[in-house]
């Protein structure tokens, strides 16, 4: 899944339109939007790091995201001299009050440049060579407890700088800035998706794990053993279905023993796998 977090409705609007998101009627504390196929969500968290952290935590409880999910905080930011409308990913997030830092991980060639980012308590026109925002530290501190650093990023579009300060901003302009970067946002998702898929692939138990645990009583330890054996089976006996040797009338212990015995008798040779 992909989870967007925006502070303002005007930041969210272009994403809601582009990704055809619909209001999730079951969410009451924060406004959450979701696609019909439940692949993409968007949460409007409100201004400030506390709102961002609360929204990420609420979102987690409400949606139950996986470690393999992509998290993107999308919004506007100020900068000393970066050009209005240009977009950046944050490579270092510093909370201006606590001085805590987070480092989103770049395991890919980014479609836009990256900069350090400082999350402020209130708007400031004392611009620096870092991005200024008011949500990233709150968002990242919670998201990184739930997700995987490599898949959590803050994408910021420059809305104000030393020559065009934030006082002249309006909602329409903000929406336009985000809208103009939709292609870049899509690129980032396309880049991150294979990494997300890699995590999904390694965290999904092989067949017929779910069928077995739904119909036969396995203890917690036996479930771990079953998953391990089925993974080994997939690697060593890819052409034989485990269903050929086990059935749903068996007890858990018999299932485990049968799989283990078959595996022990199977060949263990390296040419069967190629990197």
């Amino acid at each position: 899944m992909i989870h967007f977090f925006c502070a303002l409705p005007c930041e969210a609007k272009p994403l809601i339109n582009h990704f055809k998101l619909k209001v999730d009627q079951t969410s009451d504390l924060f406004k959450i939007y979701i696609t019909d196929d439940k692949r993409i969500t968007l949460t409007i968290c409100g201004i400030g790091k506390l709102n961002a952290a609360s929204a990420a935590a609420y979102h987690c409880a409400h949606i139950n995201p996986a470690k393999s999910d992509i998290w993107l905080n999308i919004g506007i930011a100020g900068h000393q001299d970066a050009e209005l409308g240009h977009a950046y990913l944050a490579n270092k997030i510093t909370d201006s009050i606590t001085q805590d830092t987070w480092y989103p991980q770049f395991i890919f060639k980014s479609p836009c440049k990256s900069l350090s980012l400082i999350t402020l308590e209130s708007p400031s026109n004392d611009y620096q060579a870092s991005l200024f925002d008011m949500e990233a530290s709150g968002f990242y501190s919670v998201a990184s407890r739930i997700g995987t650093n490599e898949l959590i990023h803050c994408f910021k579009v420059i809305s104000d700088n030393a020559t065009n300060d934030f006082k002249h901003l309006n909602a329409k302009q903000v929406a336009r800035y985000i809208e103009q970067q939709i292609d870049t946002i899509e690129s980032i998702i396309n880049i991150l998706q294979p990494y997300s898929n890699e995590l999904i692939q390694i965290s999904t138990p092989p067949d017929p794990f779910n069928k077995l645990v739904n119909q036969i009583h396995f203890t917690a330890t036996e479930k771990i053993q079953l998953e391990r054996l089925l993974i080994q089976w997939k690697v060593r006996l890819p052409e034989i279905k485990p269903d050929n040797v086990i059935n749903l009338d068996m007890k858990a212990k018999a299932v485990l023993k049968t799989l283990a015995n078959q595996l022990e008798a199977s060949p263990l040779n390296f040419p069967m796998m190629r990197k």
């Binding site: 480092y103 991980q105 770049f106 395991i107 997700g147 995987t148 650093n149 490599e150 898949l151």
Partner: peptide, 18 residues
Amino acid sequence: EVFNRKSQNFRLQKHQPS
């Protein structure tokens, strides 16, 4: 502060280590 953070993934980072 970069190297020891818990929520990172060794396998994913191997694609392009910094």
